[in-house]
């Protein structure tokens, strides 16, 4: 171990450098003003609501229908992303083929493309006369303005999370482990299922959870393709906005708190997962 990393534990070694008070003070002030105080306002506002009103606001059938739709579509989208994201990540890490770099760069498109743009683009493609919609319509599949369309939009938005979480995990796989499995007589499929998949499972679950969490709160890319029919294709984010437009600030706040807690719970799960896999696998080459 080199001396620097030992010293990391002792703050005195760091006091050689100036600016701790200034930067720390500014960090806390800015964080407080921009993030913490406004967030606190959300929780304060909902606590003023009273328990009964809160339950009524979040348990209303229209709201419950939006939860079901949002969670269901997000879950399916995250599952689709987990499956195809794994294939994409594997292909991008392990194989050589023409156009690979371009494909790799394209994975980040949903991060870079404003959600409103992806929203109207997806709607255009999947509506009756759209590039893809025109072929689905004769089959009786209505993609736009249906839960299917919502799922497609949420898949679009969540894909990079799975691919970008998996890529480093696949790169870190020890080839020797696969060789060991093969030398012990395992077929390639057995090596894949018993050696590779368990090794990347923490990353896969993390990517799934991140994609799921992102989908829960998504608004821009969904609002155009969903059609926004109450009880049928109204996602929770949109419901919050329509409550606001009806000046039902309390109702909007209550629903927002529920969604916020759900995504916090998911992120907590991600952190626990990473901590757990770090504990268990620490130090094994």
């Amino acid at each position: 171990m080199n001396p620097i990393s030992k010293n990391r534990r002792s703050p005195k070694q760091y006091s050689v450098l100036p600016g701790f008070g200034l930067t720390m003070g500014y960090t806390l002030l800015y964080l407080g003003l921009i993030v913490l105080i406004p967030l606190a306002a959300l929780f304060l506002k909902s606590s003023q609501l009273g328990w009964d009103d809160f339950l009524k606001a979040v348990g209303n059938p229209r709201v419950v229908a939006s939860y079901k739709l949002t969670f269901g579509a997000s879950f399916i989208a995250a599952t689709v992303n987990a499956i195809f994201g794994f294939i994409v990540a594997w292909t991008l890490v392990r194989y050589q083929f023409p156009g690979k770099r371009l494909l790799d760069a394209m994975v980040d498109l949903p991060f870079a493309l404003p959600t409103a743009v992806s929203g109207i683009a997806l709607t255009a493609i999947y509506s009756e006369n759209g590039w893809i919609g025109q072929y689905l319509e004769p089959l009786g599949i209505h993609a736009a303005f249906s839960p299917l369309g919502i799922t497609i939009a949420l898949t679009f938005i969540g894909l990079p999370f799975v691919v970008r979480t998996l890529q480093p995990a696949i790169e870190d796989l020890q080839r020797e482990n696969e060789e060991a499995a093969a030398s012990l007589g395992a077929s390639r499929l057995q090596a894949m299922l018993r050696v590779i998949l368990p090794a990347v499972m923490p990353a896969l679950l993390t990517g799934f959870a991140l994609s799921f969490a992102r989908a829960l709160g998504e608004y821009g890319s969904v609002v155009f393709i969903s059609g926004n029919m109450p009880m049928r294709t109204e996602i929770t984010s949109l419901l919050i906005i329509s409550k606001l437009e009806q000046y039902d600030v309390a109702g909007a706040t209550a629903i927002a708190v529920v969604m916020l807690l759900a995504s916090f719970a998911l992120l907590l799960a991600v952190n626990l997962l990473q901590w757990w896999s770090g504990q268990r696998y620490r130090g094994v080459a």
Partner: peptide, 9 residues
């Protein structure tokens, strides 16, 4: 971790 709509709210 916070949905855009809630960020505005």
């Amino acid at each position: 971790a916070i949905s855009p709509v809630i960020s505005g709210l």
